[in-house]
Design a protein around this nucleic acid. Sequence first.
DNA 1: CAGGATCCCGCTAGATACTG
DNA 2: CAGTATCTAGCGGGATCCTG
Lengths: 149, 149
Amino acid sequence: MSTQTAAQRRVEAKTSYNAFMEGCPSRQLLDRISDKWVALILAALGSDGPHRPGVDHDYGPRSMRFSELSRRLAGASQKMLTQTLRSLEVDGLITRTVTPTVPVTVTYELTDLGLSLNRVMAELKGWAESHMGEVLAHREAHHRVAAED
Amino acid sequence: MSTQTAAQRRVEAKTSYNAFMEGCPSRQLLDRISDKWVALILAALGSDGPHRPGVDHDYGPRSMRFSELSRRLAGASQKMLTQTLRSLEVDGLITRTVTPTVPVTVTYELTDLGLSLNRVMAELKGWAESHMGEVLAHREAHHRVAAED
DNA sequence: CAGGATCCCGCTAGATACTG
DNA sequence: CAGTATCTAGCGGGATCCTG
């Protein structure tokens, strides 16, 4: 009963480890914000930009229509946009408001929770802007060494 | 000359958008830390845990051998471990030291850059621990609504 | 001990087409 | 306008085998 114990123990360890990973709050947060469009959507809703022609006094979290988001996040398919917005709504990070006008109007807005997350994202952005240059420099240096090898 | 202009403009917008994304420091950082094992490795090297049987006075960034990392990150294949460690080294976040003993000895340690990144990760961890509960609560609530629909 | 080289699979982003 | 549905290709990541 000891021939396969080694392999079994590995599997067991892996299983419990995966369970730990999935339950880890940090991991869950990383999975959430590393989503390709999440950061962009949050940033867009956050207070990012000055533009809605004719309106320049909108500070703080803004509500935006689907089409406006779609325009600002050019490059995102409607599918991904919708999908990401849904998941953010489910997670309580944004609100979705449907106004039954003739062609229906849907607006999205950050919740307080979403706003607080935005602040964390800002920290990340700060580190990125001040240190990613170093990272890229290291990367290039190593590539040069590899090239002349 | 206007029949395909619409489609063309979409493609163009998408291209420039992707270029922007790839060049964006925040995006690059997110891509880096959202890597499945990066956060874990950084945390492990960071100062995480009290355990190397017999040694309890190791504070600050510790250097760890490949095998020790492998043990602490049970669940990670050697391939992913090696691959991730390499990329972190290339990015200047950790150092890799080879000591030509009989069976070769390799140790990894955080650089100052890696340490500073760790602090940002700690912020993330903080938010996660204090707010992910709310997120999960929202998620469950929505699922219940969906269930009785 | 610490990795390199391969093969393979599941997941998901994206394109396309359709709808209330 | 704001989605939904489906299909596919690409890639991250794991298992396995081999080496200095």
